[in-house]
């Protein structure tokens, strides 16, 4: 008992974990108002809803830590799922394998192109990724005529919708990615290089770090995770909607910032990403639970998110 109390005392509230206080508050209020909200089934359902956004936000975090931002993630998701579904519907089982490879290769390629333009020509990441997103969306619309890409295979449904025991597979996927990315970002040479580049690019260069390569890799990771997120989301709805993930480019940025991450680069918290993603998702469920009309939902959701941001600011230096 005393050990656990000591552990609690050692827990320091900072800008990355303060968001969990708001989360706990929302859960307490929700549970008091509607006890069934706290059922495991419902909580896992919320976690499943959060998984695709979480994957995307982890990818975005890599870019943010390197001092950039990627606004092409939604467009990458849409093209990725379209490529995958078209190839799968054309070639069946072989198409499943080839489609997955092509989709992930596409995501990485978009990331590499973004990274090259940002690093080699010093174009603002905001503009670069906005325009690459626009270009690939245009190409998708022209080539496909925006027809629904067709049915998705059961394997994708398995990832996005089904469960292992009580836990949705999407959540397991998210946890795995979080663990791997946590290790990469905090324990690997690449992670330390990325933080160094994001903190001070010139100093990092003089330290012998290949800054361009480091940044390009961060965009590639983001592209890869965008494709993974698109598959989880397609599996969630069971349909290859060509507009899948629309608006997620900003949602994942917001989730990252609410989680206490700094858009200027050099710092990044995976724990913060989890908190930011969860609060973005739970707030949606919370306002519906309260039975608020759509306009009031916006007000309450906005207030809850501002509160989470303020918590981060107040605890910044702790």
């Amino acid at each position: 008992m005393s050990v656990s109390l000591t552990a609690i005392k050692k827990l320091k509230i900072n800008k990355n974990n303060s968001v969990f206080i708001i989360l706990i508050l929302i859960l307490i209020v929700s549970g008091l108002y509607k006890p069934e909200f706290l059922r495991f089934g419902n909580l896992f359902g919320i976690l499943r809803q959060a998984s695709a956004l979480g994957l995307l936000t982890v990818g975005q975090l890599f870019v943010i830590v390197g001092g950039g931002v990627d606004l092409s993630v939604a467009a990458t998701m849409q093209v990725g799922i379209t490529i995958f579904t078209y190839v799968y519907n054309l070639y069946g089982l072989w198409g499943l394998v080839i489609g997955i490879i092509l989709a992930f290769a596409f995501g990485i390629l978009v990331g590499v192109i973004n990274g090259i333009i940002v690093t080699k020509y010093n174009v603002q990441p905001f503009l670069t990724t906005l325009f690459t997103g626009s270009i690939i969306t245009g190409i998708r619309m022209t080539i496909t005529g925006i027809k629904p890409a067709g049915t998705i295979p059961e394997m994708i449904r398995y990832i996005g919708r089904d469960k292992t025991g009580m836990i949705p597979n999407a959540v397991i996927m998210f946890i795995l990615v979080v663990v791997v990315c946590y290790v990469v970002l905090n324990k690997s040479v690449y992670g330390r290089n990325l933080i160094a580049v994001g903190t001070n690019k010139i100093a990092a260069k003089f330290s012998g770090i290949n800054t361009n390569s480091t940044i390009i890799k961060s965009y590639a990771v983001c592209g890869f995770l965008s494709i993974l997120a698109s598959m989880v989301l397609a599996g969630y709805i069971g349909f290859a909607d060509q507009w899948i993930g629309a608006g997620y480019e900003f949602k994942c940025l917001i989730a990252a910032v609410i989680g206490g991450n700094y858009l200027g680069g050099g710092r990044g918290s995976i724990i913060g990403v989890i908190g930011g993603t969860l609060i973005m998702t739970i707030v949606l469920n919370f306002v519906i639970l309260l039975g608020l009309s759509a306009p009031f939902q916006h007000v309450v959701a906005g207030l809850a998110l501002i509160l989470a941001l303020l918590m981060g600011i107040f605890t910044r230096n702790k």
Binding site: K34, E36, F37, R39, N42, G45, Q49, L233, Y236, I237, F239, D241, W243, I244, A246, T281, L284, N285, I288, L289
Partner: peptide, 17 residues
Amino acid sequence: SPVVTKQKVEAFLASYP
């Protein structure tokens, strides 16, 4: 959007199955 709709209906179902 089927995604947005599914998320919102799931939220309703949590309290009103």
